[in-house]
């Protein structure tokens, strides 16, 4: 029985209306708010205020540094883990479960977990102390130790969010018939060559979606940073939160939001272009 035409529309209407109300409308509002001069014709006032802020350059630098360091490491690590899972014949399910546990851990919780490890009298320092490398509790997460604070945040981010990349990649691996790399090996390719020439190109769409997903979320980094370093290390979304919540200046917060969205969109576009595949070259 073929459907009356209105059925699919009735089915998507609630979701479409909801997303319009809570995605499209606030999106437009954010943009409008960020260009609101507060009664004056100066539509860039919020942006000027944002850019003039002491933390702005720092936040930009820190956010980009974090994304630039974290995302590539996560991709490499997840790729390694996915290949390992591929080779595993026993215990695959349990290992996969363990490796994906952080998927359910919030960024705030992840920050707190790593705080327990890295704080002055934390577990890391205890180990270093017992190895005789430290004399006593030592701070790593202060404004005075920006490098170790940064490393700490990187560790926490890698710990928390590599699982997403892993899942997308493992799913991608499952879509590639084993025969392809077997065929390559039969024709004399070593396993690394087979991986590079067969698996990697076929995995490109998965790599692309993993990178988009992860990068967009990485630009949103905020709670991990807060949990570990307070406002010792400004990041973009953290600044948006501060302007909204502490300074009660919604316009500048909106300007930050628009900035983050533009960066995220730009990153998405770059990935879509750089990792594009012709559909006919995929199985």
């Amino acid at each position: 029985m073929t459907a009356p035409r209105w059925i699919p529309y009735a089915l998507i209407a609630p979701a479409a209306l909801f997303l319009a109300a809570l995605f499209i409308v606030p999106l437009v509002q954010t943009i409008l708010l960020s260009f609101d001069g507060g009664g004056t014709p100066d539509h860039l006032a919020n942006y000027r205020k944002m850019a003039g802020d002491l933390n702005f350059t720092l936040a930009i630098r820190n956010t980009f540094l974090l994304v630039g360091v974290v995302v590539p490491i996560q991709l490499a690590l997840a790729m390694g883990m996915a290949v390992m899972l591929q080779k595993m014949s026993t215990g695959r399910d349990i290992v996969l479960w363990i490796w994906t546990i952080p998927l359910g851990v919030s960024d705030l919780a992840a920050g707190l977990v790593w705080l327990a490890l890295l704080q002055n009298s934390g577990y890391l320092n205890t180990v270093l102390f017992q190895l005789g490398l430290l004399d006593g509790p030592t701070p790593w997460l202060n404004a005075e130790t920006p490098v170790t604070l940064f490393v700490g945040i990187v560790l926490a981010e890698i710990w928390r969010a590599t699982a997403v990349v892993l899942i997308v990649l493992v799913a991608g691996f499952q879509l590639i018939p084993k025969e392809y790399s077997e065929a390559a090996e039969v024709f004399g390719a070593r396993s690394w060559t087979a991986f590079r020439l067969i698996t990697l190109p076929l995995l490109k769409p998965s790599i692309q979606s993993a990178l988009i997903l992860r990068t967009v979320l990485a630009f949103e980094v905020f709670a991990v940073v807060y949990a570990l370093g307070g406002r010792n290390m400004p990041v973009l979304v953290g600044e948006a939160y501060a302007w909204q919540y502490e300074n009660q200046n919604y316009g500048v917060a909106a300007a930050y939001a628009v900035l983050v969205m533009v960066i995220s969109l730009a990153a998405t576009v770059v990935y879509l272009y750089a990792l594009r595949t012709r559909p006919e070259t995929q199985p």
Binding site: L33, V216, E220, V237, Q244, A254
Partner: peptide, 12 residues
């Protein structure tokens, strides 16, 4: 997916 959605809470 390409948007940091949570940020949209600001104007709301």
């Amino acid at each position: 997916r390409a948007f940091p959605l949570a940020i949209l809470a600001l104007p709301l």
